[in-house]
């Protein structure tokens, strides 16, 4: 039953224009991340080459190529921004569509007048969402790896590929949370439009509002590379500092930076600690989805408004 529901959902998503549009945008941005990296690389190299020529003309020694000092995976560092923005939006749409059509069209009446249980139903929907997100992350991994090959004109090392794989794995977990937000919103509200608005609201809070509260409000937050603001001694900032580990968007970015070796150096345990809130959020959202689907009234269809 779970397999049948998951297969049907994947088939339906393949033909959903809104989903395909969001997917197309995300994949385009993934490719653009590579192009931007390539462009940045070319610019730096050209400037460096010009500088070397000028310095040589003056008889002065040239400094080492600054690009060689940059981490190899810095070319895909834009993905750390695109995934919480576009990827999370795509995941919200995916989660929303997984249940909203059944809800608006009254398909729940047809589904639950059959052998399938509510537990099997939600597991099937989750399996479909997780599977689709996994395929998207795999595609993004391939596009990013190809970008690295083109820009560096060399096959990435095994270590880099493992790091890249690790990044897309934690991105998959992160996006799964947003798919669940999309599903929970459908189960918790009576109207399709309200469900989508609620899920978007949650995305805004997680992506923008919470990081603003935990870090953005600090006076030194805009001054790179200062990490520990001096003002944390004040009461308000003590509270925001305490909340920071629970800001999943921020923790995701920091963990991603650590995995891609583009951020501050951390131990493996510290990185796992940053991923833990996202995993916990996924677990909590799953529990909520299971609870809501059990008590949801599928005998009524929403009007789709």
């Amino acid at each position: 039953m779970i397999g049948a529901i998951a297969t049907q959902q994947v088939l339906a998503l393949r033909r959903q224009r809104i989903f395909l549009a969001a997917l197309g945008l995300f994949m385009a941005m993934t490719a653009i991340a590579g192009v931007l990296g390539w462009s940045s690389h070319n610019t730096i190299v050209r400037v460096y080459d010009e500088a070397v020529k000028l310095l040589a003309a003056d008889g002065r020694p040239a400094p080492p190529n600054p690009f060689l000092l940059k981490p190899t995976l810095s070319l895909v560092s834009n993905m750390v921004v695109y995934i919480p923005f576009l990827g999370a939006l795509l995941a919200v749409v995916l989660g929303h569509l997984s249940l909203a059509d059944d809800e608006a069209d009254g398909l729940g009446r047809l589904i639950f007048s059959r052998k399938v249980t509510r537990r099997e139903y939600i597991l099937g929907k989750l399996a479909a969402a997780a599977g689709v997100l996994a395929v998207i992350m795999l595609a993004a991994f391939v596009v990013s790896a190809v970008s690295l090959v083109i820009v560096n004109q060399a096959i990435p090392s095994l270590g880099d590929l493992v790091r890249l794989g690790g990044f897309f794995t934690i991105s998959w977990v992160y996006l799964l949370a947003f798919s669940l937000i999309g599903m929970v919103a459908v189960l918790a509200t009576n109207r399709r439009s309200m469900a989508l608005l609620s899920a978007m609201g949650a995305w805004l809070v997680v992506t923008f509002a919470v990081p603003q509260f935990t870090s953005g409000l600090r006076p030194t937050s805009s001054l790179n590379p200062i990490i520990d603001p001096v003002s944390t001694s004040q009461g308000f900032f003590k509270i925001t500092s305490l909340a920071e580990p629970f800001s999943v968007a921020e923790q995701y970015k920091l963990a991603s930076g650590s995995i891609l070796a583009t951020g501050p150096v951390e131990t493996g345990l510290q990185t796992i600690g940053r991923i833990a809130p996202t995993v916990a959020l996924v677990a909590v959202l799953m529990a909520i989805a299971f609870a809501l689907v059990q008590r949801h009234d599928f005998s009524r269809s929403s009007n789709g408004a």
């Binding site: 088939l11 339906a12 959903q16 009254g106």
Partner: peptide
């Protein structure tokens, strides 16, 4: 049911 709306994409 009274209004039959199955999966339109299928």
């Amino acid at each position: 049911p009274s209004e039959v709306r199955m999966y339109p994409h299928m």
